[in-house]
Design a protein around this nucleic acid. Sequence first.
DNA 1: TATTGTTATACTCTATAACTATA
DNA 2: TATAGTTATAGAGTATAACAATA
Lengths: 151, 151
Amino acid sequence: MTTPDPDGLLAEQLLRLTRRVHRIQKRHLEQHELGITPAQSRLLRTLAHFGDPPRMADLAAYLEVVPRAVTTLVDGLEASGRVRRVPDPANRRVIRIELTDEGRSTLGVLRGARRAAAQEILAPLTGEQREALGGLLDTLVGTEHTHARHC
Amino acid sequence: MTTPDPDGLLAEQLLRLTRRVHRIQKRHLEQHELGITPAQSRLLRTLAHFGDPPRMADLAAYLEVVPRAVTTLVDGLEASGRVRRVPDPANRRVIRIELTDEGRSTLGVLRGARRAAAQEILAPLTGEQREALGGLLDTLVGTEHTHARHC
DNA sequence: TATTGTTATACTCTATAACTATA
DNA sequence: TATAGTTATAGAGTATAACAATA
């Protein structure tokens, strides 16, 4: 029983790959016993992409989640001393999130773990194929912060 | 601050795409008001891939989840009349999952929704690029049921 | 009045562990 | 004893809605 729907099949494969990425990422994180969840790890990595400490809202936009979701993640990272909430003197509604030294050190471990996870997932592909995949994903999601918000 | 880690970046993009797929899929499902969740929808589609009604364990293996996860999904689908639990006469421990007419009808709507979601996600790609992406994903996750179980 | 982040709440997805009934 | 599926439980992730403080 074959599905005569190439785009749908593609979506199916994407979902399957998705799940695999999650599983492998989770396992690699657990191996390092950092006590950090995948979403926290992503937030931490995101933090490194901003030159200056971003606001909660910036993080939410970049991560493509609702601001409320960021609160929980920052709570966890702050509790483990990896991140610091700093009130913005210019606008007292705003809170900026700073990496601590602890956070930076975690980030180093995280990068290693992510690289290992990525290589495990991408093992079946040649360097050339990885490049091609990277280009296609780039077209799909964009490397820069150009993404749709919630409609 | 650029990451000098192409594979890691690729993983990042994959995760981002992943989230987008989930969000878009969820929205499309909600539009149809089928009262069906993404995971249920995936199970239903999976069902159509098996020639004969599969066992719970078959579904778990194919979906790459723990058997317990399938129970909940089938519970939901059975409650909405889309699926039927049929005891296997040859082995009374085994339960086979059958699509009902209702389930088949849902499946038709689902295919349309999935196609729409896929096209929304893949919009930035040309037909040729989609084909290339399909090939790469195929290499990564395999189209056929060759996948790792939990180690 | 609009913006920023939060408290409160709920739902989906999935996991582990222990149990039941078969085999 | 091993297998198939379940009950019980927990935790991650994310959403919506209502609210407080600030602009």
